[in-house]
């Protein structure tokens, strides 16, 4: 069964456009979850003396740990449509980041995700869908913070 048109029509389109508000507490909890004791992520006095001048987030701090506002995210659109097409499982296929500027507590990041590609492939263990999403994180003044290319793998259920 080919992928439904409601999914393939989204290729090349922006599927998430929202604002992330980066909270200091969320940065500290993220670093704590990794067991990363770097004081740049929680100690204001230390961070002020560093070349950053204020608390920053660990590279890779994107996604959930910030308050979202704006449009619904793709998981409410794409994942149910994929499940309906017989792909209800999800595996993380890896990530590629480029970092241009550290994320700071108090930042409001504009987040824009494009569905780069989604393809169905047949292999020895059955059919699998590969999805590639590209995301740009920018400050409100337009400064680019990071770009991300995320692959997810969806084996047929």
């Amino acid at each position: 069964m080919p992928l439904p048109k409601e999914i393939t029509d989204l290729i090349g389109k922006v599927i998430v456009s929202t604002i992330y508000e980066v909270e200091e507490g969320a940065i500290a909890r993220f670093a704590e979850a990794v067991d990363d004791p770097n004081p740049l992520y929680w100690d204001e006095a230390h961070a002020r003396e560093s070349r950053h001048g204020s608390i920053i987030a660990p590279p890779g701090f994107f996604g959930w740990p910030v308050k979202r506002s704006g449009e619904p995210e793709d998981r409410f659109l794409l994942l149910p449509a994929l499940a309906k097409a017989g792909y209800s499982r999800i595996l993380d296929g890896g990530i590629e980041w480029e970092f241009f500027s550290p994320v700071r507590a108090g930042d409001r990041l504009k987040v824009e995700t494009t569905l780069k590609n989604i393809v169905e492939r047949s292999g020895k263990t059955g059919k699998t869908v590969f999805m590639i999403r590209e995301t740009k994180y920018t400050r409100e003044d337009g400064e680019m913070v990071a770009t991300e290319r995320h692959t997810t793998i969806h084996p047929a259920s």
Binding site: P59, L91, D92, G93, G94, I95, E96, W97, E98, F99
Partner: peptide, 10 residues
């Protein structure tokens, strides 16, 4: 140093 690029696979 500055971490400029990072990628990984599982």
């Amino acid at each position: 140093g500055i971490l400029r690029k990072f990628s990984c696979q599982y």
